[in-house]
Design a protein around this nucleic acid. Structure first.
Lengths: 154, 154
DNA sequence: ACGATAATGATAATTATTCTCAATAAAGAG
DNA sequence: CTCTTTATTGAGAATAATTATCATTATCGT
């Protein structure tokens, strides 16, 4: 059977993993929704539309697998459910970070200041990596506060 | 009754909140353990040592309250339980960020590169604040990877 | 000291995530 | 293409963190 995402498939094969329909469906969903921060449940619902036989547990397992492979990233915005999106390293999503409203949970992606940020981050990453002997795979940057909407109704 | 943490007490009173023993005990525990990233359960156990009548639910409520007040910060390192520590803004803890091992969950605090980082962060914070009309209270920066220990046993 | 009521403790309820295990399907061998 | 091995899956049960409920308690202005 043929699927897309050749770079992921190559890595899976190289590591002796099987390329299954569920894995490709989950990856596809995340790749097609780069703007949203999908929760496991949302991914499950979308996967279920494509193939109703896909189970919840497998979606979790696949999200976990892709996270450990560094293809997607698990994000936690403090509302009790994890969110997932492709990593920058997967070359499918541009450098960006998140602005989180701690009141309503709204999340804004911002892509400003990325050149300066990127430069500093690369430097910090390299040096921390050496100093602490840590193989750094990616990073999470969130600014937390109150959005204009929540600010107004007070 | 007299407690420490006058700056917190002042703010609580100003906002019509009551200054209770449980709140002060929880705050004290976090203030006395700036190096650790305590989970709600750990805080509960320590609080329970001090006063066995303190309940789990109240610890959660207090952690949530202090978080909303910006005195402590809720951190999620991906192991399914939230951690709490004083914010930089509370002036009790120095500027630092976290290095998280996605394999074993180990967390290293690092305080390197803080001058450059701080400068950039302040700038980014100010400009994002204007652009998105967001009242930014704090930020979370985590570098995720594999620690040397986990790297060796492969 | 008193009274209004915010806060609490105990416990039940909820909810996201993980585990279990028999059934299924991917991939290499023939 | 068929067979075999075994990694992966689906369904549902189990787990664990967090939140809600509600009668009781303790704070604080008077």
């Amino acid at each position: 059977m043929r699927y897309g995402h050749p770079w992921v498939c190559r890595r899976m094969m190289a590591e002796g993993m099987r390329i299954t329909q569920t894995r490709m469906v989950v990856l596809d969903i995340l790749a097609r929704n780069p703007k949203r921060h999908l929760s496991a449940e949302e991914v499950f619902l979308m996967a279920h539309e494509i193939n109703p036989s896909i189970g919840f547990a497998t979606v979790y397992r696949t999200l976990d697998l892709l996270t450990r492979m560094g293809i997607i990233q698990k994000l936690e915005f403090g509302d009790g459910r994890a969110r997932y999106e492709l990593t920058e390293a997967s070359k499918k999503v541009p450098h960006h970070h998140h602005l989180v409203c701690t009141e309503c949970g709204k999340v804004i992606d911002y892509t400003d200041f990325t050149d300066e940020e990127k430069e500093l981050l690369t430097k910090v990453e390299r040096e921390l990596s050496e100093k602490y002997n840590f193989k750094i795979k990616n990073h999470i940057i969130q600014f937390c506060g109150i959005c204009n909407h929540c600010n107004e109704r007070r």
